[in-house]
Design a protein around this nucleic acid. Structure first.
Length: 852
RNA sequence: GGGCGCGUAGCUCAGUUGGUUAGAGCGCCACCUUGACACGGUGGAAGUCGCAUGUUCGAGUCAUGUCGUGCCCACCA
């Protein structure tokens, strides 16, 4: 046990203790523990995209305080750590970092090394080479992340570590998918889907966001065939005229009722389309009649489906207009116009088509600029298009009201912290309008573990996929061969092909409780940790990660994946704007930890109410550091008083002030405990901290001279025993928040880490005879008067008081009398006169003349 | 348009079931080097608790309305 240092300091303790915890393998989960003795946490696997944000430090600290609390409460804490490395963010980072792009048609090159200087033209590499580069880069990033987490003091069991692309994740994800498929919960469908033309993949509803972008309304004239006159429609996307399949108006719209059942011809292209009626057409929008295109937006998809209209797509998966003129454009003029658009991007085609329409006179008036919301992939930079493609879906209630209600009910079964976050969940689930699209046309992800037979004509039979044995998972259908086939049958008539797609990263990360808990490969572990106790996460991913996990767990296990969800807030700039990525990256977590110390950074995080958006505030970190320093100093002081003799009678807390302090402390212990149980680390900290400062500033000052022996051995021992009891409890109450400094001071007077000792209970600190804490307040009030007078008289607080007169109600005097000795000592009071006064408290202080 | 937060001292925020003169920290002012701590301590100035009605003996706390602010969802011709 190291002695108390002469000059305690926080310098260097972070590195010392982080290293010791790593060396000792602290915080290991005891896997012999039964479920009831376990506290399990479904840690968010962070996207490994290069750097940690201060917001991550914020929310992960919250979780760690709760983990440490439960560990001290005697639970075996299952606290794994995962990285979400599969998926698009990694692919993009690899493309830029190494200057490559994936071309699945290329063969694997075992000798491949990326260029030293990233190639701006993005060197094409095989899928396997690309995946290897992804793995190489994420490994580097993951090490950097782990270093920050260790420095921050997260009490993670690093043996329970996973990444969403590792073998176990792939096996788990594929097994869960195959079971969904077997039960009919997963299905494949060729349908219009939202499509990102830059990443060339389908995206899910949950990954879309609206952005306001500039646009313009264009009035376009449709011909009436033989009949004179035009039908004028208003559109923001005139470039979609070639894919127009109908015009639509509301059934009750008298202006257009005569036209229902007749046809119109599209401007420039001269294609004849029907005029139809549908409830979704809004008479108040534009001219009241709209063109239906395949597909301009999701309403078009609804109309197309419900009115059974033909499909006339012109925009390809690359976001460009098809090179070949569509066969439905038959007029010479129309084919000439289309030739002007072929191969152009949507934006280019838009510009050219407006020119053509203006020249032909079919554009009426000038475009009227507006700003309107347009759907984007949340990570994308161009608007989403809608293209028809074959995709995998998991039923999530988006097309089934009964199932949707079941998931809403699951959300109600879950305990939310803070409670109002449940509304976001219900809002989202209630508003679903389609099933969960899980397939992505990408490369670095978990492959769909399926093959398809090829007919004699080479046609793919999607209806009867070949699934592997669960025991053989994970598999890659693009390199492995299904049972009963040989490798040379791949792609041949009568042979097979592998499913080319990968699962979206959310489809895998929705299984983090199953992955971390060992559902597939360690059922014994799984039984001890699942359903988990806590899911900590931010509110922006309620609709993705949280909802996905509930869906998967409900479908597979018929239960919630966890009992509690603790939702953290955002970190905002000091000016209350959402902290931008660039800004957040300027202040890196590591630099903050180095500048302020881990405990100080943790203090800032833990001082924020759960779920509340919080300003980035370095001054809070300074306060945290001040608290840590105070802990060092007050510990040094209390321990310097020595230990009273072991004789039980000499160890009794006999003095009223000491008992009052401990009685108050017992209340604080109770409050801190119940707060932590409700995941309210902030309240636990606030109560403990308030007591701690009061303890240092008032109680210690009051009993100091008695502790030194001013009133004899008994009263001195009482003070010392009470101080040490309080100190021990305070160290432990603060340990979850400030693990470094508390382990440091604990080591001065104990062997073993504070993080493995029991959390204090009220009974442990409460005195055998309780004392009303008001005794200290009364003494404190009088002492404050004395101090004020000394300050007013510009005297030192050590100046003595010749006479102190207190006139007060009997009750007040009685309490004061119980602390009289300490009051005299602390205030330097020579004469104390007490007088009963029912009117109120009047205090007179006569100061001694300053001597020399 | 629907939903959910938030609005308390110059700043950042606490104020759990309504209960005596509304709290903390930072900042500001004055003072104190006192046998743990100057990375300290003592004291002070500073608030019509967004506004309005209502319920109540009593409202920062409950209800209704209103204003401001932020987020989520929907609308996207």
């Amino acid at each position: 046990m190291p002695a108390v240092p002469d000059k305690p300091t926080l310098d260097g303790i972070d590195a010392t203790w982080a290293q010791r915890w790593a060396d000792e393998g602290a915080y290991q989960f005891d896997r012999d523990a039964e479920r009831g003795e376990v506290f399990s946490i479904d840690t968010p696997p962070l996207t490994v995209s290069g750097s940690l944000h201060i917001g991550h430090v914020f929310s992960f600290t919250h979780t760690d305080t709760v983990a440490r609390f439960h560990r001290m409460r005697g639970k075996s804490v299952f606290y794994p750590m995962g990285w979400d490395d599969n998926g698009l963010p990694t692919e993009r980072r690899v493309q830029n970092y190494y200057g490559v792009r994936c071309d699945p048609s290329l063969p694997y090159d075992a000798e491949f090394e990326p260029p030293e200087i990233p190639d701006r033209t993005h060197l094409p590499v095989s899928r396997r080479n690309f995946v290897e580069l992804c793995e190489r880069l994420t490994a580097v990033d993951e090490q950097a992340f782990e270093a920050v987490w260790r420095r921050l003091g997260l009490s993670v069991d690093w043996r329970h570590y996973y990444t969403t692309i590792d073998e176990r994740s792939r096996r788990t994800s594929q097994a869960a998918f195959l079971r969904n498929l077997a039960r009919g919960e997963a299905y494949q469908q060729e349908a219009p889907t939202l499509w990102d033309v830059d990443d060339r993949t389908a995206v899910a509803q949950a990954e879309m966001e609206d952005r306001d972008v500039p646009g313009a309304y264009h009035l376009l004239a449709f011909g009436r065939g033989d009949v004179a006159g035009d039908i004028v429609i208003d559109t923001t996307r005139p470039e979609l005229v070639p894919s127009c399949v109908a015009l639509v108006a509301h059934p009750s719209d008298a202006r257009y009722q005569p036209l229902f059942g007749s046809t119109a011809t599209t401007p420039l292209f001269g294609v004849e389309v029907p005029v139809v009626a549908h409830e979704l057409a809004d008479p108040d929008k534009g001219t009241g009649v709209a063109m239906i295109c395949t597909f301009g937006d999701v309403t078009d998809v609804t109309w197309w489906r419900e009115l059974q209209l033909p499909t006339r797509a012109v925009i390809g998966r690359d976001g460009r207009f098809a090179a070949a003129t569509p066969e439905w454009i038959t007029t010479e003029r129309g084919r000439g116009a289309y030739a002007e658009l072929a191969g152009k991007t949507v934006k280019q085609a838009h510009g050219r088509l407006v020119e053509l329409l203006r020249d032909s006179g079919e554009l009426r008036g000038e475009p009227r600029p507006i700003s309107h919301p347009v759907k984007f992939y949340e990570r994308g930079s161009r608007p989403l298009e809608i293209v028809t493609s074959r995709q995998w879906y998991i039923r999530n209630g988006g097309r089934d009201a009964v199932l949707r209600e079941r998931f809403v009910d699951r959300g109600r079964e879950l305990t939310w912290y803070p409670g109002f976050m449940r509304h976001r969940y219900e809002n989202w689930v209630g508003g679903l309008n389609g099933d969960w699209l899980i397939s992505r046309q990408r490369f670095f992800g978990v492959p769909f573990p399926l093959w398809y037979r090829l007919g004699a004509d080479g046609d793919v039979d999607y209806d009867d996929p070949i699934a592997p044995d669960e025991a053989s998972l994970p598999i890659d259908p693009s390199s492995e061969v299904p049972p009963g086939f040989t490798a040379d049958q791949r792609g041949q008539p009568g042979g097979f092909i592998g499913d080319p797609d990968v699962m979206d990263t959310w489809a895998t990360s929705s299984l983090t409780p199953q992955i971390a808990g060992g559902w597939i490969d360690d059922p014994d572990l799984f039984a001890r940790v699942f359903p988990m106790d806590l899911r900590p996460q931010a509110h922006d991913i309620i609709r993705t990660w949280l909802f996905g996990a509930i869906v998967r767990s409900d479908l597979e296990h018929g239960t919630l994946p966890w009992g509690n969800a603790a939702i953290s807030g955002w970190i905002l700039d000091p000016d209350r704007k959402k902290m931008s990525k660039s800004k957040g990256n300027v202040v890196t977590p590591m630099s903050l930890l180095e500048q302020h110390g881990a405990d100080a950074v943790r203090y800032w995080a833990a001082a924020a109410r759960p779920g509340v958006d919080t300003a980035f505030d370095e001054s809070q970190m300074k306060i945290g550091r001040r608290l840590a320093t105070k802990i060092l100093n007050v510990t040094k002081f209390v321990l310097s008083l020595g230990e009273p003799s072991a004789d039980a009678s000499a160890r009794s807390v006999s003095e009223p002030l000491d008992r009052a302090m401990l009685t108050r402390l017992a209340g604080v212990v109770e409050e801190a405990t119940s707060s932590f149980e409700a995941f309210d680390y902030a309240r636990a900290l606030e109560r403990t901290e308030a007591f701690f400062w009061w303890f240092c500033d008032d109680h210690v000052e009051l009993v100091k001279s008695r502790a030194y022996g001013a009133r004899g051995d008994g009263p001195s021992a009482s003070a010392i025993v009470a101080l040490r009891t309080a100190l021990s409890a305070l160290h432990r109450l603060l340990a979850p928040i400030l693990p470094f400094v508390t382990d440091e001071v604990w080591s001065w007077w104990h062997t073993g880490s504070i993080h493995r000792v029991p959390w204090p209970g009220p009974a442990e600190v409460a005195p055998s005879t309780p004392e009303d804490p008001a005794v200290i307040d009364v003494v404190g009030e009088v002492l404050a008067h004395v101090r004020r007078r000394k300050t007013e008289a510009k005297l030192s607080q050590r100046a003595s008081v010749e006479r102190l007169t207190v006139a007060a109600p009997a009750e007040f005097l009685a309490a004061l009398t119980r602390g009289e000795g300490d009051l005299r000592a602390a205030g330097g009071v020579v004469d104390l006169e007490l007088r009963e006064n029912g009117e109120g408290v009047v205090i007179e202080v006569v100061l001694a003349a300053p001597d020399g």
